[in-house]
């Protein structure tokens, strides 16, 4: 019983610490997020992460996809594997924190949201919307 109480207290302290950590970080975080623009609209992404993704990419179309149900690395791994089978996919990044999948396609790929949705659904998650941009 004593062990259970100790562990519960330990877990509670972690939650408390994490909440404080989050609230301190939020100001900084907003600077990095919400500042990627697609067709003049803000799109919630980690800017540093997106900049890293774009590095060395030229003449590609980038699809930024909102995905529901992506809660762990196994979901991410499945999505990554599914898209990398397509030879027109040049690069993929899965952002678990923001529930986004970012895919760079070659310019000769005709991108259809229906196909993207199906691929993600085949993996057990749901794509809700997407944005397309050219680099």
């Amino acid at each position: 019983m004593r062990l259970i109480c100790l562990i519960l207290m330990f877990m509670a302290s972690i939650i408390f610490a994490e909440k404080n950590h989050d609230s301190h970080e939020h100001h900084g975080h907003t600077v990095h997020q919400n500042d990627v623009y697609v067709d003049g609209k803000k799109f919630k992404l980690d800017k540093e992460r997106f900049d890293e993704f774009k590095k060395n990419l030229r003449d590609v179309q980038v699809a930024i996809i909102n995905v529901q149900g992506m809660v762990c690395d196994f979901c991410a791994r499945g999505i990554e594997k599914a898209f990398l089978k397509d030879t027109k996919v040049k690069k993929i990044d899965v952002d678990l924190e923001n529930g986004k999948v970012v895919i760079a396609y070659s310019l000769n790929k005709k991108i259809e949201f229906k196909e993207i949705k199906e691929k993600i659904l085949m993996n057990g998650q749901n794509a809700t919307d997407y944005k397309l941009m050219k680099i």
Partner: peptide
């Protein structure tokens, strides 16, 4: 279970559980 920290994709993830 609770994850004491949220790792990114590819990081080491840890869960404390009962």
């Amino acid at each position: 279970g609770i994850a004491p920290y949220l790792g990114k994709y590819g990081d080491l993830h840890t869960w404390l559980m009962f």
